[in-house]
């Protein structure tokens, strides 16, 4: 427990010298995610703890191995939160894992994503240099935005040591409304609502019903509930959805795909079952359909598909265009010339 910076730096430096691949592990809760981990485990879990939380500044700096649950609980004491509401697919989920995998919860379309709240990072690059980018201030354009680049890089560009986040007060009021309607109607209804500034914080369709989360100031939420209608719903559903504890996400069953698409596109006609989250922008699909079907469906709609859990681990992520793939390879070399950090976890060759 505590600050393990020196030990982690030395491990990476040693691995760089000997050309030993490292497999970075936070809580180990996301071993299922991405391509198969390869290399000697580099455990981050002991590098944990809140480095700085200043409620009045609305900033938090936390070590990467800190569990997400512990972090949110500490913030809740001050009535604050990480508004992208990171999922905890497992109690062991760490802040580093959430940032590396760029996982945002059901609030994402309305509050912003992980990367939108990242203000700064401290990392070890593939040479074993400890580097700091960004900081704890709200606006910072000194140098390239390396901190945001870390979100979603799956540890292939650097080992995350610390992350600084912008925080927000928790919404004063949180209410859930439920509407019986088809998925197609839900998407149309949501598109219409999005034209006005309603205090929406979540919108998901479970196959039969649309669940709408309203969050914000007392009067705004009360007015919106009045205007938008629906029946009173259970607020616990958002955590269940966020942490993949709905029966839909159960371990057995066909592979779980995530289709990230523009919110307005009508429901897809793919074999299997679908849960629509993010007001339409994130579609969870359980399907045995071939990879090509899911990829082309997402791409045709202007998005991309990830094989999130189960299924083929050779190519979980959407293939990159040639020019973009080249850039990825060159950026990887710029951060990790020995290709020792989570090699191949994101794409083959990275």
């Amino acid at each position: 427990m505590g600050d393990r910076t020196e030990a982690l730096r030395n491990r990476v430096r040693g691995a760089f010298e000997t050309g030993t691949p490292l497999s970075i592990e936070g809580g180990g809760s996301k071993r299922f995610f991405g391509r198969r981990p390869a290399g000697e485990p580099l455990a981050i879990g002991d590098h944990r703890g809140i480095v700085n939380h200043e409620p009045s500044e609305l900033v938090l700096t936390v070590r990467a191995g800190t569990p997400v649950g512990e972090t949110q609980a500490a913030l809740a004491e001050h009535n604050q939160w990480l508004p992208f509401d990171p999922p905890r697919h497992d109690p062991a989920s760490t802040i580093g894992g959430v940032v590396a995998c760029a996982l945002s919860g059901p609030t994402r379309p309305w509050t912003g994503a992980v990367r939108d709240f990242v203000l700064g990072t401290r990392i070890v690059n593939g040479r074993g240099d400890v580097l700091s980018f960004g900081g704890e201030v709200m606006k910072n354009v000194a140098g390239y935005d390396v901190s945001r680049l870390m979100a979603g890089a799956l540890g292939t560009l650097g080992v995350l040591l610390e992350v600084s986040f912008k925080l927000l007060p928790r919404p004063a009021r949180d209410r859930t409304r439920v509407f019986e309607m088809s998925a197609g109607d839900a998407i149309l209804r949501l598109s219409g609502w999005a034209r006005s500034p309603h205090p929406i914080l979540g919108a998901f369709h479970d196959g039969d019903r649309l669940h709408l989360r309203l969050g914000g100031s007392e009067p705004a939420v009360a007015e919106a509930a009045e205007r938008l209608g629906g029946e009173a719903g259970d607020g616990a559903v958002w955590e269940t959805l966020r942490d993949h504890r709905l029966p839909f996400f159960a371990d057995d069953g066909p592979p779980l795909w995530r289709l990230s698409v523009p919110a307005h596109v009508p429901p897809f006609d793919v074999p299997g079952s679908t849960v629509i989250d993010w007001g339409g922008a994130q579609r969870w699909v359980r399907s045995d359909a071939p990879e090509s079907v899911l990829r082309s469906t997402a791409a045709a709609a202007g998005g991309h598909a990830v094989c999130f859990r189960g299924g083929d681990r050779e190519r979980p992520f959407h293939p990159l265009d040639e020019g973009i793939a080249g850039l990825h390879a060159r950026l990887k070399a710029a951060f990790d010339p020995g290709r020792i950090l989570n090699p191949g976890r994101l794409y083959d060759g990275l």
Partner: peptide, 21 residues
């Protein structure tokens, strides 16, 4: 090159964040 897209995230590194600023 196209960075980002109409969906809320894009595959691979967040090059949209990198080009900004």
């Amino acid at each position: 090159l196209t960075l980002g897209g109409e969906s809320l995230d894009a595959p691979g590194y967040d090059l949209l964040a990198l080009i900004t600023g």
